[in-house]
Design a protein around this nucleic acid. Structure first.
Lengths: 198, 198
DNA sequence: ACTCTCCTAACTAACGATCGTTAGTTAAAT
DNA sequence: ATTTAACTAACGATCGTTAGTTAGGAGAGT
């Protein structure tokens, strides 16, 4: 039994039951080993959790960066829409997105600082990257994103709303949201000329 | 000490630490009573939790219904935008929204069915009400919502994205999202004429 | 008005189970 | 021969929960 197997099993339990709800006994049972054997690989439950956390956040960041790097030749519209689709199909592969969402928004209170130290940079970077991407506009359609920073924030709101639905209702419900919300977003962001009343 | 006080304290603990992370001892300490005294009012931790759950869901539903009933004379645009603002300021009053989000998306696995039996009807009703509202269009602007059902789903995606941000970053960050995402949504939904390319 | 009774809501003490964790041991692999 | 990774046994703490007790207030009967 390798440390990677234990982390994989722990990931599933942390994702489904949270930090406090996941017990080392159940994780060990999943691996076919006894509870104390975990301590041959990890110094504590905290240690196991924080290693899982780091792995997941690093991988999620890599996935998001890699997506945009691999599609710089696509039109902006396809890049953004494909990103949402990409996140959806990445979701059903494993429990990483559920874990990610749970820990970003409902971290174990005893480890709040440690978790947030990983969440904040990732979200900041995501917003920054999106702002730059959207600031480049979309000349091949003759459209211009007027407020790239706002468009980036709105996009992240959309990402979160769809992510939440994957956690809640699974892929098919999330696809329904994507199909309904994407055209609204794209139209709103490309034809943006809005005067908010008071 | 009344049952209402215990439920209020329990709500705070469940919202902050989840079902498994909240202990009856801490809840009792908050109330200034001893742990077993809780059992004079509730038959079990489950019972306490489910009563809190029912109270919160019922109140949240009432708040949402009441908002739209009290603003039928407003233009559609104001109704929807005001709803988002209303949800935001309701959030900081107490822990109800955090509790609501946590339990809707990360329910305690041992009580999954009981929680979902309350979540599903509320969300279905919300979508239905929004669909009807949006289907009525917005004649005073000369605008027509072309796909009211999709617009309702997109609005709920927006609601969730903003709700999530209140849980994550508090009111000011959520207001930032609202300011950025609302114009995008409204423009996208009023000028909807979109052909999705495969 | 006074006592007796009943009920409520708190208490203390303790239960068994499970929690994360440590110590000490063993068998296999390097 | 040394290290690795598993094991058993057991630790103290905390979990939710139950039993048994006690003080105080409400209502009824004399």
């Amino acid at each position: 039994m390798s440390a990677a197997n234990i982390k994989q099993s722990a990931l599933a339990h942390f994702a489904k039951n949270g930090y406090e709800g996941a017990s080392l006994k159940h994780i060990a049972d999943d691996c076919g080993i006894k509870k104390p054997s975990i301590y041959a690989h990890f110094s504590s439950k905290q240690d196991l959790f924080l290693q899982v956390l780091q792995d997941v956040f690093q991988r999620q960041e890599e996935l998001m960066v890699a997506y945009f790097l691999n599609h710089t030749d696509w039109p902006l519209e396809q890049q953004l829409h494909g990103f949402l689709e990409n996140r959806l199909q990445a979701y059903q592969l494993d429990d990483e997105v559920q874990f990610f969402m749970r820990m970003a928004f409902f971290p174990p209170s005893t480890l709040y600082d440690e978790v947030m130290a990983m969440v904040y940079p990732l979200l900041d970077q995501q917003e920054q990257n999106l702002s730059r991407l959207l600031a480049s506009g979309c000349p091949e359609h003759g459209r211009i994103i007027r407020h790239p920073r706002d468009a980036a924030i709105a996009f992240m709101t959309l990402v979160d709303g769809i992510h939440l639905e994957t956690v809640f209702g699974g892929e098919e419900r999330a696809l329904r949201r994507l199909a309904a919300a994407w055209p609204v977003y794209w139209l709103g962001v490309t034809k943006q000329k809005y005067n908010h009343k008071s």
